[in-house]
């Protein structure tokens, strides 16, 4: 049996319906445990208690990027193999990604205020996220503007492709434009000053939790989209009969 079988909406509905409760439970357990554990850790010697926002900030920022990548993959699958579920999954993922980007930006601002003394800094990372948000908004707006669902899927997929290239370009252009204040990637292996294990394990847990949370939301939203399409098809058939 090939993995593409799950591209069949009926099969997808059945499978996703079966795993959804488990994913929701996993997301809830990981996110809540991770956050509570994270808030119970001792204060950082330099950053004080503000460091604890990392447990929201980093997973949200990570998901914001990963969701766009997922949308890109789903768009490619739609363009190449014409699986409707793939297109609908990309559509369903976009608002989640946009919200994750906003969470990343807001928690970043809340964190940045005591650390850098400013709510907003035109720092490359922050700016890149703002740009990513613009791309999300454009993508969502295009989906909602086109009536014919197949054309909408095609056009948004093309936009996602072109947008990905330019989002990446902007990322490096911004780096060239301003070197910025933001600390390096929190978990990168190369950086000399690594996050201590006390913070690292709860962070891994919340990252896993946010991943599962995204999966749960994605499944729910994709199921809704499929039902919406089915409803539209039934209504159209009714009108013609």
């Amino acid at each position: 049996m090939s993995i593409w079988e799950y591209a069949n909406p009926v099969k997808f509905m059945r499978t996703s319906g079966a795993i959804l409760p488990w994913v929701v439970a996993g997301a809830a357990i990981c996110t809540v445990t991770g956050l509570v554990w994270g808030f119970l850790t001792s204060d950082d010697y330099r950053q004080g208690s503000t460091v604890k926002i990392v447990f929201l900030h980093v997973p949200a920022a990570m998901m914001a990027i990963n969701i766009w990548v997922m949308m890109l993959v789903a768009s490619l699958i739609w363009l190449v193999r014409r699986h409707h579920v793939s297109a609908l999954a990309a559509k369903a993922a976009a608002p989640i990604g946009a919200v994750m980007t906003v969470i990343g930006l807001i928690t970043g601002a809340v964190w940045g205020q005591p650390m850098w003394g400013t709510w907003w800094e035109w720092d490359p990372r922050l700016t890149s996220f703002l740009i990513l948000l613009l791309f999300y908004i454009g993508y969502i707006a295009l989906w909602s503007a086109i009536e014919d669902p197949d054309s909408a899927a095609d056009l948004t997929a093309v936009l996602c492709l072109v947008g990905s290239v330019f989002a990446l370009l902007s990322r490096y252009a911004v780096l060239f434009w301003n070197q910025g204040l933001h600390q390096g990637a929190s978990l990168s292996v190369q950086s000399g000053e690594r996050m201590s294990a006390v913070y690292r394990y709860p962070l891994y847990l919340t990252m896993l939790g946010f991943g599962l949370l995204f999966l749960a939301l994605l499944l729910v939203r994709t199921r809704t989209e499929i039902r919406k399409r089915r409803l539209a098809a039934l209504q159209a058939r009714e009108m013609r009969a």
Partner: peptide, 16 residues
């Protein structure tokens, strides 16, 4: 919508 879609694409050109 056109401006919403196009302006973010202009960012790299604008920067350089």
């Amino acid at each position: 919508l056109l401006s919403l879609l196009v302006l973010p694409l202009y960012i790299p050109t604008l920067i350089f």
